[in-house]
Design a protein around this nucleic acid. Structure first.
Lengths: 374, 374
DNA sequence: CTGTTAGCGCTTTCAG
DNA sequence: CTGAAAGCGCTAACAG
């Protein structure tokens, strides 16, 4: 029992399908009042629902926005997705979701699937990678994206342009000043922290991570500090946890040594904590990693900010209640999602009209996790 | 410059569109090796991407799964969404996302939109409501859903059936034993907590919340305890926060009174905390509310579990690093999403074949937030 | 095994 | 202002 069709509605109303179409779905031309009413009644009584596929086929436009994320359950992407969803709603479009774990090959596939569905635009969130093993995948992704653009598609990318994409039009990037913000964070941190800094970054080659690491180092150097050591692990909580474990071992070893050397202030569980100068400040390239690292330290009996201080990046909302409150860099994730979606659509709609939105910006947010009490 | 079509590919390969279709997209019949290769080459050289809309129109099936959630940025829904996404992938389908803030009218609209796109199935997550103001919306939603099912659609609902839905087939519910689990939680809590219990629930009429509240009360009564007072607020973090503020005021007032009454043990900031019997145990109907409540208590200078204990429900992954670790009821959210998706599809595919999956179950997980130290 | 012929449901010229 | 006709791109019966 299939849904009723326009033709059926038209027949019931005693008009032609063309007329029915004109009244039911927007058209420049407006049929007469009486006829219109009859059609509407017929449609209602039949419970008519237009077949979007057919409409799409006829108008060659689908009312779909494709969204590509690494993992929808990651709060970073979830926040962006919410923004995309909002913007989609404004445009009276629906969003098609694809999750790829960040694998370029999967992203390519997702783009192809979106293209097949004739998505009006595609939004890609999630860090691009330039790792050697991703070279091939990236090339494929770029090619697919180019093709999509060439066929009239519009894409909005969060953060970094897709490497190798050459399409001239239909390409929109929402730049996120990761490097600058990380530099500011480092500078602000350096103002109160006298000890060493250690960075927990994602795998080398992940642009977002690399930018943040680079920016942090730059900020450090601007503050007259030596570069921080960089630990690499997965760009998620468990990566942070692992790195945190390694750091915990190191901190404990240092403490033990200090104790046997008889240095005062390098107390154990109940003292004032290590001397300010021996305490390290950890910068994790994103909040989720920072939380993982903090959990690892805690599980090793270390306390923050007493035994080590830590900062993240993103200012994930769900993590805001975490204690000690995490110092981080606030990013307007939802807004970023909205902008990526809007910019892609602007291209699609007005051929690049609209006023440019204010560029995305964030701000350093120092909280308890990096307090140097005293 | 539109994408190239099957016809073009066929022409280039010197075959008929039908043949090209047979080789490019699966068909029971398999063209000859030579011809197939020629077609494949032609397709590749033209960068052919099948038009899913056209395919859908012709086959009347879209390869789409509609997912309805309250808010994709809420970790509860994000987790379910991930499960849905996974299941969708298994079925080689894509997921269409709709967020509704839980408003039945919006949900109805979303169902209509999915129906218009001829989604093969629809998954609805997010508590149903029976509040008076939602009556009308619910009826509309039910009607829309029924129509969708009657037209051959399949729907999977998480938790509670949609009120008023009467369609006989195509309807699948993944039951979540909220009530039973909440009862178990209450019982386990009652085993060690001697003071009063207070429940922070969502608005009355939200099934999920009501089930949990009811279950908790039942567990309490089974443990020989009087029913707990129920505070109502929004079913999210800020609802929890507000309720937490109210409770904090109450706790502080009680403490002040106790102090002036000279009762020992009702200490202030650094004592042993209130006497065990005067400390309340808070049950928030979901983790996010619990976190909000905990934040409120903390902001009022109260500590958990010293001044009050608290438990939530869901065991949200992102919140697992929260300290004190939150006692809660673990729910396999991702699995729930998967099952809802699979069950809907099972109906769609085999007319209800497949072996039934193990019913969803959860388990009480007691952690630090409800420790009664001693 | 291949090609031909009809549509799927809707929009959109183009006549009337 | 309305209706008739011609597709959008693809699949699915039928023939050959």
């Amino acid at each position: 029992m299939a849904a009723s069709t326009l033709t059926e509605v038209a027949r019931l109303a005693g008009v032609s399908p063309a007329t029915a179409s004109r009244v039911l779905n927007g058209s420049a031309r407006k049929p007469g009042q009486d006829i219109a009413e009859r059609v509407r009644q017929a449609a209602a009584s039949l419970g008519y629902i237009p077949n979007a596929q057919a409409q799409g086929l006829a108008k060659s436009s689908s009312g779909l926005i494709g969204l590509i994320v690494h993992d929808i359950a990651d709060p970073y992407f979830a926040a962006i997705a919410r923004g995309v969803q909002e913007a989609a709603r404004e445009q009276r479009k629906m969003v098609l979701l694809a999750t790829t774990e960040g694998a370029p090959a999967d992203e390519r596939e997702a783009v192809a699937a979106f293209a097949a569905r004739r998505a009006d635009s595609i939004v890609i969130a999630g860090s691009r990678s330039s790792r050697p093993e991703d070279q091939e995948g990236n090339a494929g992704l770029a090619a697919e994206l180019d093709r999509y653009c060439r066929n009239g598609g519009h894409v909005g990318v969060v953060g970094h342009p897709v490497v190798g994409a050459t399409a001239t039009g239909g390409y929109h990037v929402v730049p996120v000043p990761n490097e600058e913000l990380a530099a500011s964070l480092a500078e602000e941190l350096a103002a109160t922290h006298n000890g060493d800094f250690v960075i927990i970054g994602g795998p080398e080659g992940l642009f977002t991570s690399d930018d943040r690491v680079r920016g942090f180092q730059r900020g450090l150097s601007k503050a007259g500090r030596p570069p921080a050591e960089v630990l690499r692990s997965a760009f998620n909580r468990s990566g942070g946890y692992e790195a945190g474990l390694a750091l915990a071992a190191r901190i404990k070893a240092a403490r033990t040594k200090a104790e046997s050397d008889g240095i005062k202030g390098a107390g154990s569980d109940d003292g004032d904590g290590p001397a300010a100068s021996s305490r390290i400040c950890i910068f994790a390239a994103n909040d989720v990693m920072a939380i993982g690292a903090a959990a690892a330290l805690r599980s090793e009996g270390l306390r923050i900010p007493r035994d080590a201080t830590i900062a993240g990046f993103d200012d994930i909302e769900t993590l805001r209640d975490f204690r000690p409150a995490l110092s981080t860099v606030h990013l307007p994730l939802e807004e970023i999602g909205r902008q990526a979606t809007r910019s892609a659509n602007a291209g699609a709609e007005t051929g690049d009209g609209e006023e440019a939105p204010a560029p995305v910006t964030g701000h350093v947010t120092l909280r308890r996790s990096t307090e140097t009490h005293g």
